[in-house]
Design a protein around this nucleic acid. Structure first.
Lengths: 116, 116
DNA sequence: CAGGATCCCATCTGATACTG
DNA sequence: CAGTATCAGATGGGATCCTG
């Protein structure tokens, strides 16, 4: 991807970050991958609501972004392991920051609306 | 919004954060609002590519989330000013972190692909 | 086991025109 | 100036079935 393309599409670098981690399941995938290498089926069990199609797609997009490493073992039955790249790991503080902020936000909103 | 709803919809607090700031123009709006109070038309000039409709909608969503304060002055011609709430300001470190990370990311990717 | 291929729908976003 | 209304297109996500 050339810089010119990036400059055309984004006005600000933070938009890049949001686009990379903004998919519906990506934050959760990163979250679990911070826990270490995971197999495809393992992620599928960890995220019971995601369909196989979406799981594959989001993982491939993370791979394409250079955040996730995908390793295929030529075995029968097949085994595929996903892990974070160095770039992926570098997101950890940011992701944790978002998690912490969201936690505070939810607490405040719930206490305000005073519901259940 | 009740906690039960939040728990049903999200598996992780960071998803809340991403949903609040994940609109197409929201990060940019927050970015400019960190610079201080802005009028509607001012934001429109700062974001030349956004349509009036989208600008209004994204600002209203930020307002609905409690991140932005909207003040209407009963004048002719009308004047509406947007500013961050305390909650909105609390996002500043996070947003700046995303911006910094995106900057590094773009630099790395561009240097890798070695284009233009 | 870890997917690929199709089809379908909902939501988001954009273009354009109009208004208090 | 700061919107609203309407229509249309793009994109993201989901359901289901099939396979090396």
């Amino acid at each position: 991807m050339a810089r010119s393309l990036i400059k055309d599409k984004y006005h600000c670098a933070m938009e890049v970050t949001l686009e990379l981690i903004g998919g519906k399941w990506k934050p959760l995938l990163l979250y679990y991958l911070f826990g270490g290498t995971r197999r495809f089926g393992e992620l599928k069990r960890l995220l019971p609501d995601v369909t196989q199609r979406m799981l594959t797609r989001q993982l491939r997009e993370l791979e394409g972004a250079g955040l996730v490493h995908r390793e295929v073992f030529k075995e029968v039955p097949p085994r595929v392991e996903y892990s974070l790249t160095e770039l992926g790991w570098s997101l950890k503080p940011l992701i944790e920051g978002m998690d912490a902020w969201g936690e505070v936000y939810v607490t405040k909103i719930v206490s305000q609306s005073n519901v259940e």
